[in-house]
Write a protein that binds this DNA or RNA. Structure first.
Lengths: 225, 225
DNA sequence: GCTGGTCGTTAAGGATTCATAAAGATCGTT
DNA sequence: AACGATCTTTATGAATCCTTAACGACCAGC
Protein backbone atom coordinates (compact mmCIF):
# COMPACT_ATOMS: atom_id res chain seq x y z
CA UNK A 1 0.00 0.00 0.00
CA UNK A 2 1.44 3.31 -1.08
CA UNK A 3 1.84 5.75 1.75
CA UNK A 4 1.21 9.42 1.02
CA UNK A 5 1.97 12.36 3.26
CA UNK A 6 -0.01 15.53 2.56
CA UNK A 7 1.32 18.79 3.95
CA UNK A 8 -1.14 21.66 3.65
CA UNK A 9 -2.50 24.30 5.98
CA UNK A 10 -6.05 24.31 4.63
CA UNK A 11 -8.24 21.81 6.47
CA UNK A 12 -10.65 21.56 3.54
CA UNK A 13 -7.91 20.39 1.20
CA UNK A 14 -6.53 17.95 3.72
CA UNK A 15 -9.98 16.52 4.17
CA UNK A 16 -10.68 16.24 0.45
CA UNK A 17 -7.37 14.54 -0.22
CA UNK A 18 -7.68 12.19 2.70
CA UNK A 19 -11.09 11.02 1.52
CA UNK A 20 -10.17 10.64 -2.12
CA UNK A 21 -6.79 9.01 -1.59
CA UNK A 22 -8.01 6.66 1.08
CA UNK A 23 -10.78 5.55 -1.29
CA UNK A 24 -8.08 4.73 -3.84
CA UNK A 25 -6.25 2.50 -1.40
CA UNK A 26 -3.58 4.96 -0.43
CA UNK A 27 -2.40 5.15 3.15
CA UNK A 28 -2.73 8.85 3.98
CA UNK A 29 -1.14 10.88 6.73
CA UNK A 30 -1.21 14.67 7.04
CA UNK A 31 0.65 17.63 8.48
CA UNK A 32 -0.42 21.26 8.68
CA UNK A 33 2.87 23.12 8.44
CA UNK A 34 6.46 22.76 7.34
CA UNK A 35 7.90 21.90 10.71
CA UNK A 36 5.55 19.06 11.49
CA UNK A 37 5.73 18.05 7.84
CA UNK A 38 9.48 17.58 7.94
CA UNK A 39 9.17 15.67 11.18
CA UNK A 40 6.47 13.48 9.65
CA UNK A 41 8.63 12.64 6.65
CA UNK A 42 11.45 11.57 8.92
CA UNK A 43 9.12 9.60 11.17
CA UNK A 44 6.63 7.99 8.77
CA UNK A 45 8.89 7.67 5.73
CA UNK A 46 6.07 7.99 3.20
CA UNK A 47 6.39 6.85 -0.41
CA UNK A 48 5.21 10.19 -1.80
CA UNK A 49 5.00 13.72 -0.45
CA UNK A 50 2.28 16.14 -1.55
CA UNK A 51 3.37 19.60 -0.46
CA UNK A 52 1.54 22.90 -0.52
CA UNK A 53 3.88 25.82 -1.17
CA UNK A 54 1.90 28.33 0.88
CA UNK A 55 2.63 27.12 4.35
CA UNK A 56 2.32 29.41 7.36
CA UNK A 57 5.66 28.76 9.01
CA UNK A 58 8.26 28.31 6.29
CA UNK A 59 8.88 28.66 2.61
CA UNK A 60 8.03 25.72 0.43
CA UNK A 61 11.50 25.45 -1.03
CA UNK A 62 12.96 25.23 2.44
CA UNK A 63 10.81 22.20 3.14
CA UNK A 64 11.94 20.61 -0.12
CA UNK A 65 15.57 21.24 0.69
CA UNK A 66 15.06 19.77 4.10
CA UNK A 67 13.61 16.62 2.63
CA UNK A 68 16.01 16.36 -0.27
CA UNK A 69 18.91 16.57 2.07
CA UNK A 70 18.61 12.92 2.90
CA UNK A 71 16.00 11.16 0.78
CA UNK A 72 14.82 11.13 -2.81
CA UNK A 73 11.14 10.33 -2.40
CA UNK A 74 8.92 11.92 -5.04
CA UNK A 75 7.56 15.35 -4.13
CA UNK A 76 4.46 16.79 -5.79
CA UNK A 77 3.97 20.48 -5.19
CA UNK A 78 0.64 22.26 -4.89
CA UNK A 79 0.85 25.92 -5.83
CA UNK A 80 -1.84 28.57 -5.82
CA UNK A 81 -2.58 30.18 -9.14
CA UNK A 82 -0.15 33.00 -9.79
CA UNK A 83 2.77 31.67 -7.78
CA UNK A 84 4.76 30.95 -10.92
CA UNK A 85 8.07 32.00 -9.43
CA UNK A 86 7.66 29.76 -6.44
CA UNK A 87 6.82 26.90 -8.73
CA UNK A 88 10.07 27.16 -10.64
CA UNK A 89 12.01 27.55 -7.42
CA UNK A 90 10.36 24.43 -6.06
CA UNK A 91 11.29 22.39 -9.11
CA UNK A 92 14.82 23.67 -8.90
CA UNK A 93 14.93 22.69 -5.27
CA UNK A 94 14.10 19.16 -6.21
CA UNK A 95 10.37 18.77 -6.53
CA UNK A 96 9.26 16.21 -9.10
CA UNK A 97 5.99 17.66 -10.34
CA UNK A 98 3.48 20.39 -9.60
CA UNK A 99 -0.27 20.92 -9.67
CA UNK A 100 -1.89 24.34 -9.72
CA UNK A 101 -4.77 25.02 -7.38
CA UNK A 102 -7.63 24.67 -7.86
CA UNK A 103 -7.01 21.24 -9.29
CA UNK A 104 -9.11 18.35 -10.42
CA UNK A 105 -8.79 15.24 -8.34
CA UNK A 106 -8.25 13.19 -11.49
CA UNK A 107 -5.25 15.24 -12.46
CA UNK A 108 -3.67 14.91 -9.06
CA UNK A 109 -4.25 11.17 -9.03
CA UNK A 110 -2.66 10.83 -12.44
CA UNK A 111 0.41 12.74 -11.37
CA UNK A 112 0.57 10.76 -8.17
CA UNK A 113 0.58 7.48 -10.08
CA UNK A 114 3.23 8.79 -12.42
CA UNK A 115 5.44 9.93 -9.56
CA UNK A 116 5.19 6.61 -7.77
CA UNK A 117 5.91 4.72 -10.98
CA UNK A 118 8.97 6.85 -11.71
CA UNK A 119 10.28 6.42 -8.22
CA UNK A 120 10.32 2.64 -8.26
CA UNK A 121 12.40 1.67 -11.25
CA UNK A 122 11.93 -2.07 -11.44
CA UNK A 123 15.07 -3.56 -9.97
CA UNK A 124 16.59 -5.80 -12.58
CA UNK A 125 17.37 -8.49 -10.04
CA UNK A 126 14.67 -8.80 -7.40
CA UNK A 127 16.12 -12.08 -6.14
CA UNK A 128 19.64 -12.32 -4.80
CA UNK A 129 21.06 -15.74 -4.10
CA UNK A 130 24.04 -16.91 -2.11
CA UNK A 131 25.16 -20.44 -1.36
CA UNK A 132 23.47 -20.21 2.03
CA UNK A 133 20.30 -18.20 1.55
CA UNK A 134 18.10 -16.34 -0.93
CA UNK A 135 16.75 -12.81 -0.61
CA UNK A 136 13.61 -11.95 -2.56
CA UNK A 137 13.34 -8.18 -2.63
CA UNK A 138 9.91 -8.17 -4.25
CA UNK A 139 8.31 -10.70 -1.92
CA UNK A 140 10.21 -9.35 1.09
CA UNK A 141 11.25 -12.85 1.97
CA UNK A 142 14.45 -14.60 2.94
CA UNK A 143 14.87 -18.34 2.57
CA UNK A 144 17.72 -20.42 3.85
CA UNK A 145 19.05 -22.92 1.38
CA UNK A 146 17.22 -26.05 2.43
CA UNK A 147 13.71 -24.69 2.46
CA UNK A 148 12.80 -23.01 5.73
CA UNK A 149 12.27 -19.29 5.53
CA UNK A 150 13.80 -16.79 7.92
CA UNK A 151 11.65 -14.42 9.95
CA UNK A 152 12.97 -10.88 9.92
CA UNK A 153 11.59 -7.97 11.93
CA UNK A 154 10.73 -4.80 9.97
CA UNK A 155 13.93 -3.05 10.97
CA UNK A 156 16.07 -6.05 10.17
CA UNK A 157 14.46 -6.23 6.76
CA UNK A 158 15.00 -2.57 5.97
CA UNK A 159 18.66 -2.90 6.79
CA UNK A 160 19.11 -6.05 4.76
CA UNK A 161 17.23 -4.57 1.84
CA UNK A 162 19.50 -1.54 1.61
CA UNK A 163 22.60 -3.66 1.84
CA UNK A 164 21.37 -6.12 -0.77
CA UNK A 165 20.27 -3.38 -3.14
CA UNK A 166 23.81 -2.05 -2.94
CA UNK A 167 25.24 -5.48 -3.39
CA UNK A 168 29.01 -5.42 -3.33
CA UNK A 169 29.11 -1.73 -2.67
CA UNK A 170 30.14 -0.27 0.64
CA UNK A 171 27.28 1.49 2.39
CA UNK A 172 28.19 4.19 4.89
CA UNK A 173 26.88 3.96 8.42
CA UNK A 174 25.43 7.43 7.98
CA UNK A 175 23.50 6.27 4.97
CA UNK A 176 22.13 3.18 6.67
CA UNK A 177 21.11 5.10 9.78
CA UNK A 178 19.54 7.84 7.72
CA UNK A 179 17.53 5.50 5.56
CA UNK A 180 16.34 3.19 8.31
CA UNK A 181 15.99 5.40 11.36
CA UNK A 182 15.92 8.89 9.82
CA UNK A 183 18.37 11.76 9.67
CA UNK A 184 18.23 12.47 13.39
CA UNK A 185 19.93 9.14 14.15
CA UNK A 186 22.99 9.54 11.95
CA UNK A 187 25.35 9.07 14.86
CA UNK A 188 23.69 6.14 16.63
CA UNK A 189 26.06 3.64 15.13
CA UNK A 190 25.44 1.18 17.94
CA UNK A 191 22.03 0.47 16.45
CA UNK A 192 23.82 -0.89 13.44
CA UNK A 193 26.00 -3.17 15.51
CA UNK A 194 23.01 -4.61 17.30
CA UNK A 195 21.02 -5.24 14.14
CA UNK A 196 23.90 -6.47 12.07
CA UNK A 197 24.55 -8.99 14.82
CA UNK A 198 20.94 -10.14 14.61
CA UNK A 199 21.02 -10.44 10.86
CA UNK A 200 24.21 -12.42 11.05
CA UNK A 201 22.75 -14.73 13.64
CA UNK A 202 19.83 -15.40 11.34
CA UNK A 203 21.65 -15.61 8.02
CA UNK A 204 25.31 -16.42 8.38
CA UNK A 205 26.35 -20.05 8.77
CA UNK A 206 29.03 -18.83 11.17
CA UNK A 207 27.78 -15.56 12.69
CA UNK A 208 31.06 -14.62 14.31
CA UNK A 209 32.87 -15.11 11.02
CA UNK A 210 30.62 -13.36 8.51
CA UNK A 211 30.88 -14.29 4.83
CA UNK A 212 28.14 -12.04 3.49
CA UNK A 213 27.52 -9.14 5.86
CA UNK A 214 30.95 -7.62 6.15
CA UNK A 215 32.14 -4.85 8.42
CA UNK A 216 34.57 -2.26 7.15
CA UNK A 217 35.81 -0.69 10.32
CA UNK A 218 35.26 3.03 10.50
CA UNK A 219 33.46 3.15 7.18
CA UNK A 220 30.35 1.04 6.99
CA UNK A 221 29.02 -2.33 5.92
CA UNK A 222 28.94 -4.30 2.72
CA UNK A 223 26.88 -7.21 1.43
CA UNK A 224 28.96 -9.62 -0.59
CA UNK A 225 26.86 -11.86 -2.83
CA UNK B 1 24.48 23.37 -2.21
CA UNK B 2 25.88 23.57 -5.70
CA UNK B 3 29.43 24.87 -5.82
CA UNK B 4 30.37 27.10 -8.72
CA UNK B 5 33.84 28.26 -9.65
CA UNK B 6 34.02 31.42 -11.76
CA UNK B 7 37.25 32.11 -13.63
CA UNK B 8 37.39 35.59 -15.15
CA UNK B 9 39.89 38.42 -15.19
CA UNK B 10 37.35 41.24 -15.06
CA UNK B 11 36.58 42.18 -11.46
CA UNK B 12 33.19 43.64 -12.40
CA UNK B 13 32.02 40.36 -13.84
CA UNK B 14 33.34 38.37 -10.91
CA UNK B 15 31.51 40.68 -8.60
CA UNK B 16 28.24 40.55 -10.49
CA UNK B 17 28.31 36.77 -10.68
CA UNK B 18 29.24 36.34 -7.09
CA UNK B 19 26.33 38.50 -5.95
CA UNK B 20 23.77 36.93 -8.22
CA UNK B 21 24.82 33.34 -7.70
CA UNK B 22 25.17 33.65 -3.97
CA UNK B 23 21.67 35.10 -3.81
CA UNK B 24 20.46 31.96 -5.62
CA UNK B 25 21.99 29.68 -3.02
CA UNK B 26 25.05 28.77 -4.98
CA UNK B 27 28.38 28.42 -3.23
CA UNK B 28 30.67 30.67 -5.27
CA UNK B 29 34.44 30.76 -5.48
CA UNK B 30 36.50 32.72 -7.99
CA UNK B 31 39.83 32.84 -9.75
CA UNK B 32 41.32 35.58 -11.91
CA UNK B 33 43.45 33.62 -14.37
CA UNK B 34 43.95 30.20 -15.86
CA UNK B 35 46.68 29.06 -13.54
CA UNK B 36 44.88 29.77 -10.31
CA UNK B 37 41.68 28.58 -11.95
CA UNK B 38 43.11 25.15 -12.65
CA UNK B 39 44.48 24.95 -9.15
CA UNK B 40 41.10 25.94 -7.74
CA UNK B 41 39.32 23.23 -9.71
CA UNK B 42 41.67 20.60 -8.39
CA UNK B 43 41.48 21.91 -4.87
CA UNK B 44 37.82 22.86 -4.47
CA UNK B 45 36.28 20.32 -6.83
CA UNK B 46 33.36 22.57 -7.77
CA UNK B 47 30.19 21.20 -9.32
CA UNK B 48 30.30 23.63 -12.24
CA UNK B 49 32.96 25.76 -13.84
CA UNK B 50 32.17 29.12 -15.45
CA UNK B 51 35.17 30.06 -17.57
CA UNK B 52 35.98 33.24 -19.45
CA UNK B 53 37.90 32.55 -22.65
CA UNK B 54 39.85 35.82 -22.61
CA UNK B 55 42.23 35.17 -19.75
CA UNK B 56 45.52 37.03 -19.44
CA UNK B 57 47.86 34.10 -18.89
CA UNK B 58 46.68 31.23 -21.02
CA UNK B 59 44.31 30.31 -23.79
CA UNK B 60 40.83 29.21 -22.75
CA UNK B 61 41.08 25.89 -24.52
CA UNK B 62 44.23 25.07 -22.61
CA UNK B 63 42.35 25.54 -19.38
CA UNK B 64 39.58 23.29 -20.60
CA UNK B 65 42.03 20.59 -21.64
CA UNK B 66 43.68 20.86 -18.26
CA UNK B 67 40.37 20.32 -16.51
CA UNK B 68 39.06 17.66 -18.87
CA UNK B 69 42.18 15.63 -18.38
CA UNK B 70 40.82 14.18 -15.20
CA UNK B 71 37.24 15.27 -14.50
CA UNK B 72 34.02 15.74 -16.41
CA UNK B 73 32.40 18.54 -14.45
CA UNK B 74 30.24 20.81 -16.59
CA UNK B 75 32.06 23.81 -18.07
CA UNK B 76 30.18 26.90 -19.21
CA UNK B 77 32.23 29.23 -21.33
CA UNK B 78 31.93 33.02 -21.44
CA UNK B 79 33.06 34.50 -24.74
CA UNK B 80 33.22 38.09 -25.92
CA UNK B 81 31.21 38.95 -28.97
CA UNK B 82 33.11 38.15 -32.12
CA UNK B 83 35.25 35.36 -30.73
CA UNK B 84 33.39 32.76 -32.75
CA UNK B 85 36.47 30.72 -33.47
CA UNK B 86 37.48 30.49 -29.83
CA UNK B 87 33.99 29.48 -28.92
CA UNK B 88 33.99 26.53 -31.28
CA UNK B 89 37.44 25.52 -30.17
CA UNK B 90 36.26 25.62 -26.57
CA UNK B 91 33.32 23.36 -27.28
CA UNK B 92 35.61 21.03 -29.20
CA UNK B 93 37.91 20.94 -26.23
CA UNK B 94 35.08 19.77 -24.04
CA UNK B 95 33.07 22.75 -22.84
CA UNK B 96 29.39 22.02 -22.26
CA UNK B 97 27.77 25.31 -23.14
CA UNK B 98 28.58 28.92 -23.90
CA UNK B 99 27.20 32.38 -23.18
CA UNK B 100 28.19 35.42 -25.22
CA UNK B 101 29.09 38.61 -23.43
CA UNK B 102 27.35 40.82 -22.65
CA UNK B 103 24.84 38.38 -21.26
CA UNK B 104 21.67 38.58 -19.23
CA UNK B 105 21.87 37.06 -15.79
CA UNK B 106 18.69 35.10 -16.43
CA UNK B 107 20.20 33.37 -19.40
CA UNK B 108 23.30 32.40 -17.52
CA UNK B 109 21.26 31.09 -14.61
CA UNK B 110 19.12 29.01 -16.94
CA UNK B 111 22.17 27.48 -18.60
CA UNK B 112 23.72 26.87 -15.22
CA UNK B 113 20.68 24.97 -14.00
CA UNK B 114 20.59 22.96 -17.18
CA UNK B 115 24.26 22.06 -16.91
CA UNK B 116 23.94 20.96 -13.30
CA UNK B 117 20.87 18.90 -14.09
CA UNK B 118 22.55 17.15 -17.01
CA UNK B 119 25.56 16.35 -14.93
CA UNK B 120 23.90 15.09 -11.78
CA UNK B 121 22.54 11.70 -12.88
CA UNK B 122 26.00 10.74 -14.11
CA UNK B 123 28.30 10.87 -11.12
CA UNK B 124 31.85 10.61 -12.39
CA UNK B 125 32.96 7.73 -10.23
CA UNK B 126 34.81 5.47 -12.58
CA UNK B 127 36.66 2.24 -12.07
CA UNK B 128 40.39 2.54 -12.42
CA UNK B 129 42.29 -0.54 -13.45
CA UNK B 130 45.96 -1.38 -13.44
CA UNK B 131 47.63 -4.65 -14.35
CA UNK B 132 47.87 -5.51 -10.66
CA UNK B 133 44.69 -4.20 -9.06
CA UNK B 134 41.37 -2.44 -9.62
CA UNK B 135 39.98 0.52 -7.72
CA UNK B 136 36.22 0.98 -7.68
CA UNK B 137 35.47 4.47 -6.35
CA UNK B 138 31.72 3.98 -6.14
CA UNK B 139 31.84 0.69 -4.29
CA UNK B 140 34.84 1.79 -2.25
CA UNK B 141 36.54 -1.43 -3.12
CA UNK B 142 40.01 -2.44 -4.21
CA UNK B 143 40.56 -5.84 -5.77
CA UNK B 144 43.88 -7.38 -6.57
CA UNK B 145 44.06 -8.98 -9.97
CA UNK B 146 43.34 -12.57 -9.11
CA UNK B 147 40.16 -12.07 -7.14
CA UNK B 148 40.85 -11.37 -3.48
CA UNK B 149 39.87 -7.92 -2.31
CA UNK B 150 42.12 -5.64 -0.31
CA UNK B 151 41.04 -4.24 3.04
CA UNK B 152 41.80 -0.56 3.46
CA UNK B 153 41.36 1.51 6.60
CA UNK B 154 39.38 4.76 6.31
CA UNK B 155 42.50 6.91 6.16
CA UNK B 156 44.18 4.66 3.64
CA UNK B 157 41.08 4.79 1.50
CA UNK B 158 40.78 8.58 1.63
CA UNK B 159 44.36 8.94 0.55
CA UNK B 160 44.07 6.45 -2.29
CA UNK B 161 40.82 8.02 -3.46
CA UNK B 162 42.38 11.45 -3.83
CA UNK B 163 45.37 10.08 -5.68
CA UNK B 164 43.21 7.99 -8.00
CA UNK B 165 40.82 10.85 -8.69
CA UNK B 166 43.83 12.88 -9.75
CA UNK B 167 45.14 9.99 -11.76
CA UNK B 168 48.39 10.78 -13.50
CA UNK B 169 48.84 14.19 -11.99
CA UNK B 170 50.97 15.24 -9.12
CA UNK B 171 49.19 15.90 -5.87
CA UNK B 172 50.92 18.15 -3.39
CA UNK B 173 51.67 16.98 0.12
CA UNK B 174 49.83 20.02 1.42
CA UNK B 175 46.78 19.08 -0.57
CA UNK B 176 46.76 15.47 0.60
CA UNK B 177 47.27 16.44 4.22
CA UNK B 178 44.59 19.09 4.05
CA UNK B 179 42.01 16.83 2.48
CA UNK B 180 42.61 13.82 4.68
CA UNK B 181 43.65 15.24 8.02
CA UNK B 182 42.45 18.84 7.75
CA UNK B 183 44.15 22.19 7.27
CA UNK B 184 45.86 22.08 10.65
CA UNK B 185 48.04 19.16 9.60
CA UNK B 186 49.52 20.66 6.44
CA UNK B 187 53.07 20.16 7.66
CA UNK B 188 52.81 16.66 9.12
CA UNK B 189 54.36 15.07 6.08
CA UNK B 190 55.43 12.01 8.04
CA UNK B 191 51.80 10.92 8.11
CA UNK B 192 52.01 10.63 4.36
CA UNK B 193 55.14 8.54 4.52
CA UNK B 194 53.53 6.14 6.94
CA UNK B 195 50.34 5.74 4.99
CA UNK B 196 51.91 5.64 1.58
CA UNK B 197 54.06 2.81 2.87
CA UNK B 198 50.96 0.95 4.01
CA UNK B 199 49.19 1.47 0.71
CA UNK B 200 52.22 0.25 -1.15
CA UNK B 201 52.47 -2.80 1.05
CA UNK B 202 48.85 -3.62 0.23
CA UNK B 203 48.79 -2.73 -3.45
CA UNK B 204 52.21 -2.78 -5.03
CA UNK B 205 53.63 -6.09 -6.21
CA UNK B 206 57.01 -4.85 -5.05
CA UNK B 207 56.39 -2.29 -2.29
CA UNK B 208 59.94 -1.02 -2.13
CA UNK B 209 59.92 -0.40 -5.88
CA UNK B 210 56.56 1.29 -6.46
CA UNK B 211 55.03 1.18 -9.94
CA UNK B 212 51.80 3.00 -9.19
CA UNK B 213 52.17 5.15 -6.09
CA UNK B 214 55.10 7.32 -7.01
CA UNK B 215 56.98 9.80 -4.87
CA UNK B 216 58.08 13.11 -6.29
CA UNK B 217 60.68 14.19 -3.82
CA UNK B 218 59.95 17.50 -2.19
CA UNK B 219 56.66 17.89 -4.02
CA UNK B 220 54.12 15.22 -3.45
CA UNK B 221 52.79 11.95 -4.77
CA UNK B 222 51.31 10.70 -8.01
CA UNK B 223 49.19 7.74 -8.98
CA UNK B 224 50.18 6.28 -12.32
CA UNK B 225 47.45 4.15 -13.84
C1' DG C 1 83.71 12.99 3.32
C1' DC C 2 80.65 15.42 6.04
C1' DT C 3 76.07 17.43 6.84
C1' DG C 4 71.22 18.59 6.54
C1' DG C 5 67.06 17.43 4.46
C1' DT C 6 63.69 14.20 2.66
C1' DC C 7 61.99 9.70 2.43
C1' DG C 8 60.91 4.64 3.81
C1' DT C 9 60.17 1.39 7.36
C1' DT C 10 58.82 -0.44 11.64
C1' DA C 11 56.72 -0.92 16.11
C1' DA C 12 54.36 0.38 20.43
C1' DG C 13 50.94 2.96 23.00
C1' DG C 14 46.54 5.01 23.23
C1' DA C 15 42.21 6.03 21.13
C1' DT C 16 38.47 4.62 18.53
C1' DT C 17 35.34 1.35 16.85
C1' DC C 18 33.23 -3.18 16.96
C1' DA C 19 30.72 -7.57 18.68
C1' DT C 20 27.95 -9.49 22.01
C1' DA C 21 24.88 -10.15 25.69
C1' DA C 22 21.45 -8.62 28.40
C1' DA C 23 18.45 -5.39 30.58
C1' DG C 24 14.62 -1.72 30.07
C1' DA C 25 10.91 0.43 26.97
C1' DT C 26 7.17 0.20 23.87
C1' DC C 27 3.40 -1.67 21.44
C1' DG C 28 -0.27 -4.61 20.02
C1' DT C 29 -2.76 -8.84 21.22
C1' DT C 30 -4.90 -12.09 23.90
C1' DA D 1 -3.45 -7.62 33.10
C1' DA D 2 -0.18 -10.44 31.13
C1' DC D 3 2.29 -11.82 27.34
C1' DG D 4 5.30 -11.86 23.31
C1' DA D 5 7.62 -9.49 19.83
C1' DT D 6 10.22 -5.75 18.66
C1' DC D 7 12.96 -1.87 19.45
C1' DT D 8 16.10 0.88 22.34
C1' DT D 9 19.80 1.40 25.52
C1' DT D 10 23.77 0.19 28.20
C1' DA D 11 27.95 -2.31 29.53
C1' DT D 12 32.12 -5.01 28.64
C1' DG D 13 36.02 -7.02 26.41
C1' DA D 14 38.02 -7.60 21.88
C1' DA D 15 39.54 -5.98 17.51
C1' DT D 16 41.05 -2.41 14.74
C1' DC D 17 42.97 1.90 13.65
C1' DC D 18 45.66 6.25 14.39
C1' DT D 19 49.36 8.63 16.13
C1' DT D 20 53.95 9.17 17.31
C1' DA D 21 58.75 8.30 17.61
C1' DA D 22 63.00 6.17 16.33
C1' DC D 23 66.36 4.63 12.98
C1' DG D 24 68.52 3.95 8.58
C1' DA D 25 68.82 4.95 3.47
C1' DC D 26 69.36 8.11 0.00
C1' DC D 27 70.61 12.45 -2.19
C1' DA D 28 72.41 17.23 -2.79
C1' DG D 29 75.44 20.82 -1.45
C1' DC D 30 79.38 22.31 1.00
Amino acid sequence: MTRVLVVDDEPSILRALRINLTAREYDVSTAIDGTTGLAAVARDRPDVLILDLGLPDMDGTEVIHGVRGWTSIPIIVLSAWGQEGQKVAALDAGADDYVTKPFGMDELLARLRAAVRRASPAPDEPVVTTPDFTVDLAAKQVMRTGGDDVRLTPTEWQLLEILVRNSGRLVTQRQLLREVWGPAYETESNYLRVYLAQLRRKLEPEPSRPKYLLTESGMGYRFRP
